[in-house]
């Protein structure tokens, strides 16, 4: 579904990704874990077109999307819930969700409209808090609610692949649990996901496959269960994650 080959990316002169390859098969949840500054968010940004890669190749649904602008990648069916939520603060929760479905609503949108109202209903069922706050401005939501909105907004694209970047960042422990519970439900629905997380243990708990990123390179990868029991991964990430 999503294949990344030898991806390189840089911010100005500083190279962040030194050629990483990973594969997200259809219907699976793949997680990318690693310490701060390893290049997790950069990988996500390069895949969704927020950042132009300096090398390598990204293939989505058999189409080469390397270097395409973000809006064209979205039209091919990739949704990205970015780091820091990035909801539209001056617009209502409902408008934010409708903007998530922009590619399905407009003439040049290229995504089938499908059952828009049904999807809106399902997104609000998944995040009941948003249903109560539909008419509230997104900027007035709490951090946790904004995270829910960012995820719901990404789902409104009806994506082929969903990128979730740090969905638990800055949330209270009880909300972190809720977010992972929701990711589990999305997985059960068969949604293909690439998940970046600080909470490596929880991410490996929900994922099928995992990649460990160190200084812009893939250090280890394997089925999630195998990584969970890998002593080196445990020492570096799983123990460390619990102390945060």
């Amino acid at each position: 579904m999503l294949e990344i080959h030898d991806l390189k990316a840089a911010y100005g002169q500083v190279q962040v990704l030194h050629g990483i390859s990973l594969n997200v098969p259809q219907g699976q949840v793949v997680t990318l874990i690693g310490s701060n500054g390893a290049g997790k968010t950069t990988t996500m940004r390069a895949v969704s077109g927020m950042l132009r890669p300096s090398g390598g190749r990204i293939v989505l649904r058999g189409r080469d999307i390397t270097g395409l602008p973000a809006h064209r990648i979205a039209k091919i069916g990739l949704a990205h819930s970015p780091e820091g939520r990035r909801v539209f603060p001056t617009q209502s929760v409902r408008d934010n969700l409708m903007l998530g479905a922009f590619t399905r609503l407009t003439l040049g949108g290229k995504r089938p409209r499908g059952d828009l109202q049904g999807d809106l209903g399902r997104a609000l069922d998944l995040f009941p808090r948003l249903r109560e706050r539909q008419n509230q401005l997104a900027g007035t939501l709490s951090g946790g609610e904004q995270q829910m909105l960012a995820m719901a907004r990404a789902l409104m694209l009806n994506p082929e692949v969903l990128l979730l970047d740090e969905p638990s960042m800055g949330l209270a422990p009880i909300l972190v649990e809720e977010v992972f519970h929701i990711i589990g439900r999305l997985k059960a629905q068969g949604i293909t996901m690439l998940l970046v997380e600080q909470f490596a243990a929880a991410a490996l708990g929900v994922a099928d496959y995992g990649y460990v990123l160190e200084n812009g390179r893939i250090a280890v990868h394997g089925p999630a269960a195998q990584l969970r029991s890998d002593p080196k991964v445990q020492a570096a990430y799983l123990g460390g994650a619990a102390s945060h």
Binding site: M50, A70, H71, A74, K75, F88, Q91, L99, F102, A154
Partner: peptide, 17 residues
């Protein structure tokens, strides 16, 4: 709404398509 979204966060608006 897309114009307003672009005004508040251009990168995030791009992600919406």
């Amino acid at each position: 709404k897309a114009v307003v979204a672009t005004a508040s966060d251009r990168d995030a608006a791009g992600l919406m398509g």
